[in-house]
């Protein structure tokens, strides 16, 4: 994961023309052009992958629940880019982006979405239940908030083994009102466990806006009573995510305990594929897309760094091709053997 090691670069002047939002110049300048392109590619891969998943769902190749990550790409790509190989990751069911950012193979992920034997869970888990021990990705959990105590358990095991790694526990704004989240805040703070709670606040828990569901001023402050520091972060800006992520990871890694990052982000698609989207207006979605899109923003920066249109086209077709390969691989794969019905219940 740690492909984006910090390298000192000469100060490049970065001016934001379209959105006018200030960017942390320091981080932009610390990264090489290649590293910036790598971040761009990872976010684009997630977006194109999710668009393809949406299509396949429409065609009936993907069934059940399918929660797309489109719009939120900067959060997981930014966080994973500042983490170490060996840090563990756990999240809820909007998880395809996390898997790709953890380095899991898009082919295996897509094959799982389509319920094929070559999927990460042999077709038995589906969209919400995928794991890769090899990549330290621990799911993929379908019960809102249940991944949080498991996340502190992973942090407990890092601490027990003193292996120096941190668990990044992702949860949504909908999960923050589950009681077990606070049980986890308490124990992780009590025992100074190396865990970061990354709250992806995309403004809606299913169809209920945060303002209608959560009391208090800020989700970043939800750990205050336990002495857990929290930061509100612009989750649409990968550099803000990276900067906050580094700070939180350093804090947790040196043994100071848990850290909360509230990532202000936005999902462009519905909660799941069957979301009628009556709770927000089209113009609200469009405004975010046009002004804050994480991929477009990074593209502008890359353009300022003299990345040519041809280069972008090349990247686009490379990503599209990867996604097509994944989709073809999935659709060409067999359904699981019927014998699989009764395997993997016990070891």
């Amino acid at each position: 994961m740690n492909k984006l090691v910090n390298t000192t670069k000469k100060n490049l002047k970065v001016k934001r023309k379209k959105t006018g939002r200030p960017l942390k110049e320091s981080d932009v300048n610390l990264l090489s052009k290649e590293e910036l392109i790598e971040l761009y590619k990872q976010m684009l891969l997630i977006r194109r992958f999710e668009e393809k998943a949406g299509q396949l769902y429409g065609m009936g190749s993907i069934g059940g629940f399918c929660h797309l990550y489109i719009g939120q790409e900067a959060v997981v790509v930014g966080m994973q880019s500042v983490s170490l190989d060996g840090d563990s990751v756990i999240t809820s069911y909007r998880d395809h982006g996390h898997m790709l950012a953890c380095g899991m193979d898009p082919k295996g992920v897509m094959a799982e979405l389509t319920g094929r034997e070559s999927g990460y869970s042999k077709g038995k888990g589906g969209s919400m239940h995928m794991f890769s021990k090899e990549k330290n990705f621990f799911g993929g959990h379908g019960i809102v908030g249940a991944q949080v105590p498991i996340g502190i358990g992973l942090a407990f095991s890092h601490n027990y083994k003193q292996d120096g790694f941190v668990c990044m526990t992702y949860l949504g704004d909908g999960a923050v009102n589950q009681g077990q989240v606070y049980e986890s805040f308490n124990m992780s703070a009590l025992w100074k466990l190396p865990v970061i709670f990354v709250i992806e606040n995309n403004k809606y828990g299913m169809g209920t806006s945060v303002t209608r569901a959560s009391a208090g001023r800020s989700l970043a402050e939800r750990g205050k009573a336990y002495g857990i520091p929290g930061l509100e972060v612009d989750g649409m800006n990968i550099f803000s995510v990276r900067e906050a992520g580094k700070k939180a990871l350093d804090y947790a890694r040196k043994g100071s305990g848990p850290f909360i990052l509230e990532m202000k982000t936005y999902r462009y698609r519905g909660h799941s594929m069957s979301d009628p989207a009556k709770y927000r207006t089209r113009s609200e979605v469009d405004a975010v897309r046009q002004q804050k899109d994480c991929i477009e923003n990074l593209k502008e920066i890359l353009q300022e760094q003299k990345i040519t249109d041809d280069h972008f086209k090349k990247i686009d077709s490379e990503i599209k091709s990867n996604v097509s390969v994944a989709s073809d691989f999935a659709l060409d794969s067999s359904l699981p053997d019927e014998k699989e019905l009764l395997t993997d219940i016990y070891i």
Partner: peptide, 18 residues
């Protein structure tokens, strides 16, 4: 602490963690 759901989940995570 008295926090059954929390420590049961913590145990599951620790088991996943080896």
């Amino acid at each position: 602490p008295i926090t059954e759901q929390g420590f049961a989940g913590l145990g599951v995570g620790a088991a996943f963690g080896g």
